[in-house]
Amino acid sequence: MLLTLYIEFFKTGLFAVGGGLATLPFLYDLSDRYGWFSYEQLADMIAVSESTPGAIGVNMATYAGFSTAGLPGAIMATFGLVSPSIIIIIILAHILERFKQSTLIQGAFYGLRPASTALIAAAGFNFMFHDLINTSVYNGLQSLHAVINIKALIFSVVLYVIMQHRLFKHLHPVVFIAFSAIIGILFSF
């Protein structure tokens, strides 16, 4: 059982490319094939993984492993998930180190850096869009009130302005996260 967990999550880590949610289809597949957890449990896992600290993919693996076989299961699933990354990235890092001076690699990174920044910006934008705009409500008739999360919009502007101030600029991100949690409790967006 533990070995199967390790192998299955090793496969997930090997074939899931991208962020943590890329592991989702693999988890549905595991649910179908082994019945380790139900689709409902999987929905709970996503909610918990997204709202607790840590990478979502790791959280999901830990959760799935734990609900299947307790703490040992959690450890095996998580190690399974990260093993392919460790192997592939370390090999890749050595290769890059060796060919750092080649114009091919330099050219590739010249193109990759703006693309990488754009992908991060797009992820942030999508995140913001789904939090501020409730597209499911929109039918062309309702007022903007129902569609836009005004409280969250105001708070995001306020938070951004606060962050630019020289008094707060150099604070650790966790300070802003904690502050936002308190504001969230007080005003509930």
């Binding site: 709202s51 920044t117 991060i120 910006a121 992820a123 942030g124 934008f125 995140f127 913001m128 939090d131 969250a152 708070f155 995001s156 938070l159 951004y160 962050m163 991100p173 802003f176 996260i177 502050f179 936002s180 949690a181 308190i182 504001i183 969230g184 409790i185 005003f187 509930s188 967006f189």
Partner: peptide, 22 residues
Amino acid sequence: SAFSGIRVSVYILILQAVLKLW
């Protein structure tokens, strides 16, 4: 409720980080 606030800080922090990379 706490997470409704945290979500805002997450994308504002990402925005800030992107501006640094930019």
